[in-house]
Structures are given as C-alpha cells and as structure tokens.
Design a protein around this nucleic acid. Structure first.
Length: 953
DNA sequence: GCAAGGTC
C-alpha cells in the first residue's frame, strides 16, 4: 500500500446500502467482504480513488439509529419522580445493548482510518444517525477527517458523483431530530405515567381484561391517530337521519332500459317534492333536450410508494398495514421487490423501466400483458406519471426480480408481489378509454338525465384487475324525441352517517396531517389496537373502545386538543425551522417544553375531567386513584322520588354542583344490544319502529332498569360545597343534611353572603333566590366534531338532565323545546306578527325555526295540536315559494315536522298518522299504481314512511 | 411499564 494511501471508513444506514455502494464503487476490481462484530453488518473492502487520492475503502453499516435517548438512571423508574419532573430531568443518548456490537465494529475500524465518510440516508433522520456515528468514531479516533456523501439513488453515476463531491454533515438537520426526540420522550413519558397511574387503579378497565401490565400511553402520534378514530365515531353518533325524496324515471324501449335521475338530486321538503311530482305525472311526456357524447379516460395509478401500498393492500386484500410492511420487508430482503419504505411516487428518468417489464414476460398470468406492453405496435406503453412525491432516497416500489411464486411464500407474499408487479405494469400503460353518453330529458319543466358508458379500450385495466370501470349501455336518443316514461316514481330515502374509518382512510388522515412517517404509520395504528384504544373489524374499520373514547373525551373536556393533529403539526413546523437554521434547537426545545409542561400541569389540575370521562364508561374500584372526584358523593338525603337510593352531592364536569339520585342510569351505551344486556340495561330508546328498518344503521340507547333521574341543581355561582353533619329541622322526610356553600363573589348580588349553610329540601329561601337570579349549572350538552352542530347524539354518554316537562334527556326544563315554542308564540303575538290558524283543525299554529340541513333557519308554522299534522313554510305564505301554489300542498301530510328537536322529537310530533294521506294517490305515468320502493318502514307501496301506520311514536 | 424514529 502506497504511503499516500488513506484508509477511509464508510458507513451506511443499512447493510444493503453498504453492499450496493461497495458494489458500484468497486465495479472494476470487486470487493473483499469480512465479518464485523455484528452478524448483520458486514465490512466490504476495496481500493478507490477520491479526487486523485488513492483510498483503501472500508465500508460497513449501522441498522438505523445507533443510539437511544433516555432519562438519567434515577428518573427511569415510574415512581422515582413526579412525572412533571420529566420536563427537566437530564436525558442522555447512549448505545443500547443490542447495538453494542455495531459500536465495537465502528470503534475498531475507526482506529485504523484517517477519514470517515458518512453514507447515511439523505433525510433528517439519516443526518442525525450520521452524528451518532461521528460520536462513536471520534471517541475512538479524534484525528478523523469527517465527510458526508450526498446521494439520492443507488445508481452508478449518482454514487460516483457523491463520493467525488463530499460535503460537510449538516448539523441543523441532526439538531431538528434531536429536538424531536427529546420532546417526544418528555411528553410521552410524562403523560403516559400520569394517566396510567391516575386511572389504572381507580377503575375496573374491562376493555383490557386480565392485562395487568396495562399502560395508558400517550404519544404525539398515537393520540391524534386515536383522535381520528374517535372523531369519526362521534360524527356517526351525532348523525341525524333525515328523510328525503327524489323523482325517478325509467324508459324501456326495444334497445333496452334507461334510468333517468332527477337533476335536482333530492329534496328534503316532502311537500315540495310531491307538488313537483304531481306536475310531472299530470304532464308526463318526456322530451329529449340534449344528447352529449364524449370520450373519457381512466388513468392508471401513480407509481407505488409505501402509503399507497399499505392502503391498496388493505383495500384489496384486507391486510393490515403492519402485516403488509412485514411481508413487503421479507420480499425486499429476498430481493423480489425494491425498498418498501419510500415516499417516492415518481420514477427517475434513469430507471430502466423496459428491463423491469421484460423480466415479467415469462409469468403465466401477466406475462402476455408484459409482452404486449413491450411490443411498440400495440401502442400500450406510456411513460409513467408521478404523483409529486420524491424522498430523493428510494425509487417507487417495483419488482426487482422475477418470480412465479416461491415455495416458501405464504398467500400474502403471493398477493403482495402480484400487487407490486401489476401496479408497476399498470403505471407504464396507457389509460383506459371510454365513450360516455349523457341524455337529458324534460318532463313538465323538470330535468332528468341518464348516462351510459362503453369501454372502448381497457388498456391498463387488463392487468390491474383490482380496478374496474363499469359500462352501461344506453338506448339511442335524439334531441326533440318524445316518449312516455315506463315508470315515474316518487321515492324516499334517508341520509346516512359516514362509515367508520377504514385502515386506508386512517392512513390518508395521517398522511394528510403529517402524523408519523411512511415507515411508522402502521406502527401507530397497531399501537391503538395493542393499547386497547380501538378495535378493527373484518372490514378493516376502526371503532374506539370505551377506553379510547374516554381518554379523548377527558382531554377534550379539559379543552385540550392533545388528541388533534395540531401539536404534531406545530412540532413539525419547528423541526423544519431548526433544519433550515432559522431557529436553534435549544430555542425550540425551551419554548415547546415550557408550553407542554404548563399544559401537563394544567391537565393534572383538571384530572377530574379525565376521571369523570372514565367514570362514564368504567366502574370505579375501591382503590386509591381518583379520590379527588368524590365519586360516590356525600349523602344529602334519601331520594323522595324513587325512595330507593340516596341523593348525593356531586360536581359535574363543568364544575357545577348538583344533588342527584344514585339511581341515575350510570351507564348509557350508544352501543350494541348485547353489551347493554351484559350490564342489565333493558330500556331501549331508539328510533321507534322505523328503527327496525334501519337496524345496523343507527345506534340505539340502553338505560339501566332501575333508574331514577331525580336531581336538584344548585346555583351556578357555587364555588365549593360540602355536606355537613347538621340536619334541617323543617324538611321531610328527613334527615336532610345541610350543605356548606361558598359562592363566587362576583357572580352573586352584593347583598348575598359568600358563605351559606343551606338546605336543598325546599325550605331555603336564599338558595331559591340565587337559583332564580343566577340560574343553575345544568347544561344541555355540547357539540363535538364537525357534524355535531345541529344536535349531538354524543351527549347521551354524559350524565344528563331530565326535563321535568317532557321527561326527555338532553335538555333541562328551562330549555324545553315545548316551553320555548310557547315563549316564541307569546313573543310573536306581542310583536304583532300574524298568527296562523291551522287550516286542517282550526287550532292556532306555532312559529318554529327549522334546523335541518336544507332548511336551517327557515321558519314554519306547525299546528299546536299533537293530533294534527298541519304545517306550512312561512315564506310560502308570503310569496308562494317561487310562484308555486302551496295551498293544496299544505293539506298533504308533512314530511318530518318534529325534526327540529332531533332525537328529542320522539314523543312529540310523532302522533301523526295517515289521516291526511287518503287525498294523495301515487300512480305511474301509465296510470298504474306506482311500483318499486316505497315506504322504507314496512315496504308498502301505498304510502311513504312518514304516513306509515307502523311508524312508532 | 413511557415516545417516535431508524432497521434486522
């Protein structure tokens, strides 16, 4: 070896890269391979010349991060410190036991070298690993010259270019990761310890039966992932089914059948739909007004990256993302597919796509397609389009070796390899071509359209059998042509809630909000299942468990969005600033940790919210842990209503006090019946009889059998309240224990004392006055999630007030809709607004405001009589609703008059029957009684669901 | 017993 020769230690992020780069750089003379201390990380040796400098190259690798961040020894045990201390506890990086052999290899080789060249992946994590390697190597040899190789693909030109243009390692990139690691560790450990220790002993957590090592973990990625699942679940719970109507038309001719859809889509206003429908059937001749013909293309998917692979495997094969990655990793290790952890969905122009296709020509199933693809005469080839993502490190996932199946492959290996190959062949293929025809017709001024499609060229669809593009033939129509429809029907339907999130949906949410990386998303999803926060059904759809829902609810009640993706997004922005040098690592760490510590301390002060949320779903133990809640409450008196249970003093989640009966239904399950039965719940509140027709669509509610809803709400300004041993001399039946109150000074009139020893038995004038002046702390529940604005089914999970007027939950007697309407009516009369009498029964009508999706804010009059169904839109009285005559329509039974109350409408407004129905008959354009779908409750074609005699009330 | 990120 020449005296001028330097020995260079090269380190890659993984063994495969060390081998690939060594292969490329030693192309002329080859390399020698020898063992290192770690069985996976071999050492490759070869000669090379860097900018004229002869080098003896040693090439080895690590396996991802070499070091781990951890707390100092004395903070590691859970009970060693207050979790809040974890925001300042010293942390240090060290090499864990299972990486010690790699460290020894690096140390030994570094001692022999003059240069260290870092070949870690060119992203922030890679840069951070580079500095871990530098740490280890410089400890062994302080005289090393340190350089970084920048490369974006493992191809000859790129690698040679990288080694001839070595640069300095980027400390900013590494700093960003250091900050991320430290924040993740401190937040994760503090919240996890806090919530686990708080709740594990306080509740019987039957969601995780028999799991003694139950950990209620919190993490900046896993919690927002859970948040997505819970939010969708709440959205479904909050959904109010709304009935709508649509007019359908079909026409059968010699050439076949055409189904025409109403251009208005559907209407929620039944009256309006009927009026239009009647106009159509009175004048049913259809005139063709337009015939459009156009060519449509269906494009193949973009080249495959990790998230797409996971999503498609989940969609096509119901494979979990975690399992997909395991199988993909094995296929990669065996050389059949390219590196499976990649963001890239565009092929580099240097990739030899044709060669990859050529290899697949021998396959019995798709070989012929590959042959056609390579034949220029077919014109099937098309250079792939990218989706705009490039991690600059790895190409899209593609086949790297031909296989018609290996003997050691499982079904899933076969499926996944096939998906990778078919996807690859698809994205180098031409799009499918179809001819689309749209025919528009006019019936009595109403427009309808029908469309048909003929697939002219399947192209990529021939190989990508996971996708289809249905064709429907349409008879020929010409503009001006007239015909009488074969059927013309008014059909009803109901709006449906969105489905539970599927695994593919969840990945989309995470990707969109930047939760996790493509290599870790599946881990976070799996963590939800491992921690018993969510379950996954056979359709890969996720439902939160009671535990998952309670945790999210608890933090939500505190007002924290810790379960939302915002925290992670903010952290990600900070990391970016650090990597760009606009903020320093210490600056970001200081501000972020300060904020998070404040948040942590506040959460701890408000831990009662978490305990209360847990208390909704889980039974308490007698052990320590949320004793702050006074869970059982202090007994004030025997309940005079049920005469079975005690009434106890309680503080609700908003900090308001009440004295409630212990017989109050503690468990309210918006869940499956079986679950309810297990808890002895027999009362069912659902959707009346139509619930049968909607079974599976909506959740019902089950209450405990021996329930008592007796409650006395205390004045809102109560700051503190404690039951004393003094009893009231006047109230019976006794004893009624007196309560020592402390009121908030600013919230009560000046002539009242802040301290008061009071009685809730009815004798206490001061309590009565303060309640009248200041109101109580009762509430009607909150909206959760975007869909919860109108009415929130979720509130049924919380302890609810029972209205003394209508005996329904969801509002107090102060807020009872029936009372409210009464008040409105009074106000209207005071204001001199026109009062309307029912044209059907003569009773006065109440002016109400609609709260349905399509008519929110619109005013309508509704007959006060519960036996009558009359209703009319206010604006239709004034202007005739755009010229249409509604006089007749108002005699037609209304669609959903009680809708303004949502679930609370049961009982009221359900007294309608078919009394008005006889006036309206439904016939097709041909004069026959209409056929097809009608009432969705009983299926009878003679009426709609709103008139169904089977519909409950 | 805690996080998330690498990778085997």
């Amino acid at each position: 070896m020449s005296a001028r020769t330097v020995t260079v230690l090269n380190v890659a992020e993984k063994p495969s890269v060390a081998r690939s780069v060594s292969t490329i750089l030693s192309r002329n003379q080859g390399f020698r391979m020898r063992e290192g201390r770690s069985r996976y990380n071999k050492i490759f040796e070869f000669s090379y010349s860097i900018r004229g400098q002869p080098c003896n190259m040693l090439f080895t690798s690590v396996t991802g991060h070499l070091m781990e961040l951890e707390f100092d020894e004395r903070f590691r045990k859970w009970h060693s410190c207050d979790p809040a201390d974890l925001y300042q506890a010293p942390v240090r990086k060290s090499v864990p036991e299972d990486k010690k052999d790699i460290k020894r290899t690096l140390e030994e080789e570094a001692r022999r070298c003059q240069w260290l060249v870092l070949w870690l992946d060119c992203d922030r994590e890679g840069e951070n690993i580079a500095f871990e390697v530098i740490d280890v190597c410089t400890m062994a040899n302080q005289n090393l010259t340190i350089k970084r190789a920048r490369f974006s693909a493992l191809i000859d030109r790129e690698i040679h270019q990288a080694v001839q243009n070595l640069v300095e390692p980027n400390k900013w990139f590494a700093d960003a990761v250091d900050a991320r690691q430290e924040i993740d560790l401190r937040i994760g450990a503090s919240f996890t310890r806090f919530q686990t220790m708080l709740m594990k002993d306080a509740f019987i957590i039957d969601t995780a039966p028999g799991d003694r090592n139950l950990v209620l973990s919190y993490g900046p990625c896993q919690f927002p992932t859970l948040g997505f699942v819970v939010e969708r679940y709440w959205e479904i719970q909050a959904h109010e089914p709304e009935e709508f109507w649509t007019i359908n038309c079909s026409h059968r001719s010699d050439e076949g059948l055409a189904n025409f859809n109403w251009m208005r889509g559907h209407l929620f206003d039944y009256t309006c739909a009927v009026v239009i429908y009647e106009m159509c059937i009175e004048e049913p001749t259809a005139t063709v007004t337009d015939v459009k013909q156009q060519e449509k293309l269906k494009y193949p998917p973009h080249p495959l990256n990790t998230i797409e692979l996971e999503k498609r495997a989940s969609r096509y094969f119901r494979m979990s993302s975690e399992h997909t990655m395991k199988v993909a990793e094995e296929l990669y290790q065996a050389g059949f597919i390219s590196y499976p952890r990649t963001e890239t969905d565009i092929f580099s122009s240097r990739t030899d796509l044709h060669t990859i296709v050529q290899e697949q020509q021998a396959h019995p199933e798709w070989g012929t397609y590959a042959q056609r693809l390579l034949d220029p005469e077919t014109g099937l080839w098309r250079n792939p389009r990218g989706g705009g993502h490039d991690d600059k490190a790895h190409p899209p996932i593609h086949p790297t070796k031909f296989s018609s199946g290996e003997s050691n492959w499982s079904q899933d290996h076969h499926k996944l390899y096939e998906l990778v190959v078919r996807h690859f062949l698809a994205c180098v293929s031409k799009p499918a071509v179809g001819a689309e025809t749209i025919v528009e017709i006019d019936i009595a001024g109403e427009l309808f359209h029908a469309s048909g499609r003929v697939v002219l060229e399947k192209n990529y669809l021939d190989v990508y059998r996971y996708e289809s593009w249905g064709g429907t033939m349409l008879p020929t129509y010409t503009v001006g042509q007239q015909f009488i429809p074969t059927t013309l029907t008014l059909d009803s339907g109901v709006t449906r809630p969105p489905p539970l999130l599927s695994e593919a949906d969840l990945l989309t949410c995470m990707d969109k909000e930047g939760i996790g990386t493509d290599a870790t998303m599946h881990d976070h999803i799996k963590k939800l299942l491992d921690r018993f926060y969510a379950t996954k059904d056979a359709n890969t759809r996720f439902t939160p468990t009671n535990l998952g829902e309670a945790l999210v609810m608890g933090y939500d009640d505190m007002g924290y969005k810790l379960w939302k993706p915002y925290l992670r997004a903010a952290m990600e922005r900070d990391m970016k600033s650090v990597s760009e040098g606009t903020k320093s690592k210490s600056e970001v760490l200081a501000t972020c940790l300060q904020q998070m510590k404040a948040c942590f301390l506040d959460a701890r002060v408000n831990k009662v919210k978490l305990l209360e949320a847990m208390g909704i779903f889980f039974q308490r133990t007698n052990r320590a842990g949320g004793d702050e809640l006074h869970a059982t409450g202090e007994v004030v008196r025997r309940c005079g209503l049920c005469q079975e249970s005690d009434m106890v003093l309680r503080k609700n989640r908003d900090g308001n006090f009440m004295v409630g009966c212990l017989g109050y239904p503690q468990i309210v399950f918006p869940r499956r019946k079986q679950e309810a039965n297990d808890f002895g719940c027999v009362h069912e509140f659902g959707f009346g009889n139509e619930g049968k027709a909607l079974e599976g669509l909506f959740h019902k509610f089950y209450y405990l059998e021996s329930e008592c809803r007796n409650a006395v709400w205390l004045p809102g300004p109560v700051l503190e309240a404690a039951v004393t041993s003094n009893t009231c001399n006047t109230c019976t039946p006794g004893p009624v224990f007196l309560i020592q109150f402390k009121f908030r000074r600013l919230e009560i009139p000046p002539n009242y004392s802040v301290d008061h020893l009071g009685c809730i038995g009815g004798c206490d004038q001061i309590l009565t006055e303060l309640t009248e002046i200041c109101g109580t702390g009762s509430r009607t529940g909150r909206a959760r999630g975007p869909a919860a604005q109108t009415n929130n089914a979720h509130q049924s999970n919380t302890r609810q007030v029972v209205c003394m007027n209508c005996q329904e939950t969801g509002h107090s007697s102060n807020d009872c809709p029936s009372q409210r309407n009464g008040r409105h009516r009074g106000m209207n009369q005071q204001n001199g607004e026109a009062a309307v009498s029912c044209s059907s029964c003569g009773m006065p009508c109440v002016l109400r405001t609609a709260n349905t999706e399509n008519n929110r804010g619109r005013k309508f009059y509704s007959c006060q009589s519960q036996e009558c169904n009359f209703f009319v839109w206010e604006d239709s009285l004034n202007n005739g609703a755009g010229g249409r005559n509604f006089t007749r329509a108002s005699n037609i039974p209304r669609a959903n008059p009680g809708r303004n109350g949502g679930r609370g409408s049961r009982g009221r407004g359900r007294g309608r029957n078919g009394s008005h129905a006889a006036n309206t008959t439904f016939v097709s354009a041909t004069g026959d009684p209409v056929s097809g779908r009608r009432c969705y409750v009983c299926g009878d074609p003679s009426h709609f669901a709103n008139m169904c005699p089977n519909r409950g009330g």
